[in-house]
């Protein structure tokens, strides 16, 4: 028997074992039609309460653990704000790594000449990264980021300080709402969907919570109005 046959056989043995184990289960739905019917009539999941003010709920929940949030009045103010936030106070250049995101591209970067923007995938030595959130979830205070040209996954995990731009209208109440948006956004799932709710942290030494193990040491969310008039 060749290798492929052995593998096929193992697959069949496991699936066969599973089939005979569940066949007589009262909850087992034998046909595709039964399953489809189940999914049609399945009640939606219960959810924990979320206040009416999604921006407020999101902000307070993500700040419960080591993240910071700021609200700006206009999108135009973003470059200047980042220069202040990330700057050292001296007249040094600030290198900012971003993905190829047209929304970021269109910001008035000329208002912050000290920022040197590098549009690429982050490398291990990069200090500051900027991403725009695909959306955010109020329920758990989570930013949702999708892999791709606009925001390579490396940019979310390799930089020391991660700044995330979030449009007010992109805050949804629940995880289910985020999934709905993701499904509607493209024909197929991106390779990575990341729900980020704080900086990288660990409790592995002495049961003491310590920020900044592998990924970003800080997470800063900049909330901006959705319709810059």
């Amino acid at each position: 028997m060749n290798e492929q046959d052995v593998r096929k056989q193992d697959r069949e043995k496991i699936l066969g074992g599973v089939r005979s184990a569940v066949r007589k289960d009262p909850g087992h739905l034998a046909s595709v039609e039964d399953l489809a019917k189940y999914w049609k009539s399945r009640p939606s999941a219960p959810r924990p309460p979320v206040g009416d003010d999604l921006v407020e709920t999101f902000s307070s929940r993500i700040q419960e653990f080591a993240s910071t949030v700021v609200r700006l009045d206009s999108l135009e103010a973003v470059p200047r704000y980042i220069a202040e936030y990330a700057g050292t106070g001296e007249d040094e250049n600030i290198t900012l790594v971003t993905g190829e995101d047209p929304r970021l591209e269109n910001l008035p970067w000329d208002t912050a000449p000290e920022i040197r923007r590098e549009v690429r995938k982050a490398e291990r030595t990069d200090n500051i990264g900027l991403s725009q959130a695909f959306c955010a979830v109020a329920e758990s205070g989570s930013i949702v980021l999708l892999s791709g040209k606009a925001d390579p996954t490396s940019n979310d995990f390799l930089v020391d300080r991660h700044i995330i731009l979030l449009a007010e209208d992109d805050i949804v109440p629940y995880h289910e709402d985020a999934w709905k948006r993701i499904r509607e956004a493209g024909s197929s799932m991106p390779r990575a969907v990341n729900f980020i709710s704080g900086p990288s942290s660990t409790g592995d030494v002495d049961l003491t919570l310590q920020v900044g193990v592998h990924g970003p040491r800080t997470l800063h969310v900049v909330i901006v109005p959705s319709n810059p008039s």
């Binding site: 929940r61 892999s147 390579p152 390779r191 704080g198």
Partner: peptide, 19 residues
């Protein structure tokens, strides 16, 4: 309430993905 990271991965990099 939730961990810092909850991530869903699948498949190799897509066409155009930088990583």
């Amino acid at each position: 309430p939730i961990t810092s990271y909850v991530s869903f991965f699948g498949g190799p990099r897509k066409q155009g993905d930088p990583d």
